[in-house]
């Protein structure tokens, strides 16, 4: 028997039992190649640090307390922005999804402002609010709102017409129809919207921290860029990637699965 095939068979069985392994193992060859390329000095060290240096940088910055503090700042801003974004986006989406009048009155305006895009707001926000939390929160809220609105509208409209009717004829008052039927019916879409919105908001946050920056992972990376320290840039990228991976895999994806899949509203692979 072919030993490579056999090894692959073991791997497949293992990962079936522990899916976490399947998410980690593919990174081993990548890190190995990275390490090899770096130690052969294919590119100058200053441009292309190796894994060991990045780990050392990680330990160093963690020890100094900079990394935890910056991480806290970034995550805090993202949560604040996402919270406000949902608080605006979900009600707006429900209103626009339910009322034809609200749709007509706001839809082109929503499309227009969505097209401008978050980051293009940065310069004028800097004039209005200066370098600070307000500017960054504004940008993130702005990014999160549109995907949430679009998906909420889609979700509200995808609730079959007979469901609110059934609720009404079972004696539900109008506001209960909203909480018992429209909201849960739109929930899988709202979660998708939030997921997309955070994907954009995340990038907006990094951009804002780079441009506005006084702290945060984006600032860390750009500060390192100014000092010409590739190690900290790479470190920042890895932290960003891991963080988003964790949020997406442990928070957003489970919510999506728990809502849509059991109810049979969404089928995802």
């Amino acid at each position: 028997m072919n030993p490579a095939l056999q090894a692959w068979g073991y791997y497949a069985r293992w990962t079936a039992r522990w899916p976490g392994v399947a998410a980690l193992v593919p990174f081993i060859p990548v890190v190995a190649i990275w390490w090899l390329v770096a130690s052969l000095e294919v590119f100058p060290r200053a441009f292309f640090p190796g894994p060991a240096e990045v780990v050392r940088g990680f330990v160093d910055l963690t020890y100094k307390g900079i990394l935890p503090a910056y991480l806290e700042d970034s995550v805090g801003r993202l949560l604040l922005g996402a919270g406000f974004g949902m608080a605006i986006g979900i009600p707006l989406g429900i209103l626009v999804g339910l009322s034809q009048t609200a749709y007509r009155a706001t839809w082109p305006i929503i499309l227009f402002f969505q097209a401008i895009g978050d980051i293009a707001w940065l310069p004028i926000l800097l004039i209005w609010f200066g370098f600070g939390l307000t500017t960054m929160t504004f940008v993130i809220v702005y990014t999160v709102v549109f995907p949430v609105v679009f998906n909420t509208v889609l979700g509200v409209r995808s609730v079959p017409r007979d469901l609110p009717r059934a609720a009404l004829s079972l004696g539900a008052p109008r506001w209960r129809v909203l909480t018992e039927v429209i909201l849960p019916g739109a929930l899988p879409n709202i979660v998708t919207g939030l997921r997309n919105g955070l994907g954009y908001g995340w990038r907006a946050l990094i951009a804002a921290e780079i441009i506005v920056g006084t702290s945060g992972i984006g600032f860390l990376m750009f500060d390192a860029r100014r000092a010409g320290s590739a190690t900290e840039i790479v470190l920042g990228m890895i932290v960003l990637g891991l963080l988003w991976y964790a949020v997406d895999a442990w928070i957003l994806a489970p919510i999506e699965r728990a809502t849509g899949q059991r109810w049979g509203l969404v089928t995802r692979t």
């Binding site: 079959p160 004829s169 019916g185 929930l187 109810w263």
Partner: peptide, 15 residues
């Protein structure tokens, strides 16, 4: 609630 409706599409709440 005085008139109960049975729908062709069932109209059960999936959640």
């Amino acid at each position: 609630a005085d008139r109960g409706v049975v729908f062709q599409s069932f109209a059960l709440f999936p959640w």
